[in-house]
């Protein structure tokens, strides 16, 4: 009986009919339902390549407590080594941002705004909006196509009141991963950026993008991010998300 089921599943899959989800909302709900770690410590290496082929690198260590608190410390290159960036979500959902620059010698509160979503993430091709992802309730989702795999092609468009730089995003989401392995960002009717996730790591039962690339189509520049050294769900003392740790 079991053998028959496997044969049947293989047969159905070959016709692209074995998918578990039939609507965009089902796919997005399944993505949202994936567990994410309560805490994580990650080493991130970022390589920024300009349209002319010149490269700059950034290396940083990140401590995260869910989506509430995050402390980023740069470990390379030497001219920015030691700089740190702490964000703490306030009870009303707004975000407090503190910056530590060793040359300045003090922690500085910095302004963040809705417009910041368009701002570059530490000079890379990623924006804060790209890193943070979209808020489901602020976007309409449409399932455009189901390809072999199955691979879901989902288009999201912002609702009227949504603050975003994009007019639509098209995701390619393999059912096996439930992480968009390719995302196309459209602006002013044209393809603006393409993000690909080429490696997904399994850490502590979580699927985490380990290697990704964001290309800006118009300029030819691109940024590659490699994440490693994961520690998940290990307790992180609250003082890690403090000015004291930022200064250390």
């Amino acid at each position: 009986m079991k053998r028959l089921s496997i044969v049947l599943a293989t047969f159905l899959a070959s016709f692209g009919l074995a998918q578990m989800y039939n609507t965009a909302d089902e796919v997005m709900d399944a993505m949202d339902a994936q567990a994410s770690p309560d805490t994580s410590i990650t080493t991130t290496t970022m390589k920024i390549t300009s349209g002319s082929g010149q490269t700059l690198s950034r290396q940083m260590q990140t401590w995260s407590l869910g989506e509430e608190k995050q402390n980023i410390k740069f470990t390379a290159p030497p001219d920015i080594e030691g700089s740190g960036f702490l964000t703490i979500e306030q009870s009303d959902g707004s975000e407090e941002s503190l910056l530590w620059l060793p040359a300045l010698g003090r922690v500085r509160r910095i302004a963040t705004s809705g417009d910041d979503q368009d701002g570059s993430f530490f000079g890379s091709d990623f924006t804060y909006e790209d890193i943070g992802g979209i808020e489901r309730e602020e976007w309409e989702s449409v399932l455009l196509e189901i390809r072999d795999g199955p691979l879901y092609i989902v288009e999201v468009t912002p609702k009227e009141a949504t603050s975003t730089q994009y007019e639509r995003i098209v995701y390619e989401i393999p059912e096996a991963e439930l992480i968009p392995t390719r995302s196309e960002f459209y602006k002013a009717g044209e393809l603006f950026k393409i993000m690909t996730i080429s490696e997904i790591a399994e850490v502590g039962g979580y699927r985490i993008p380990a290697a990704m690339k964001m290309e800006t189509v118009g300029t030819g520049s691109f940024t590659e991010i490699q994440q490693s050294g994961y520690t998940v769900d290990e307790p992180i003392p609250d003082e890690v998300f403090s000015e004291r740790f930022l200064r250390r």
């Binding site: 910095i110 302004a111 963040t112 705004s113 417009d115 910041d116 368009d118 701002g119 570059s120």
Partner: peptide, 9 residues
């Protein structure tokens, strides 16, 4: 006061 407009502070 400090205010940010995208990449302009």
């Amino acid at each position: 006061t400090e205010y940010r407009f995208g990449d302009v502070t």
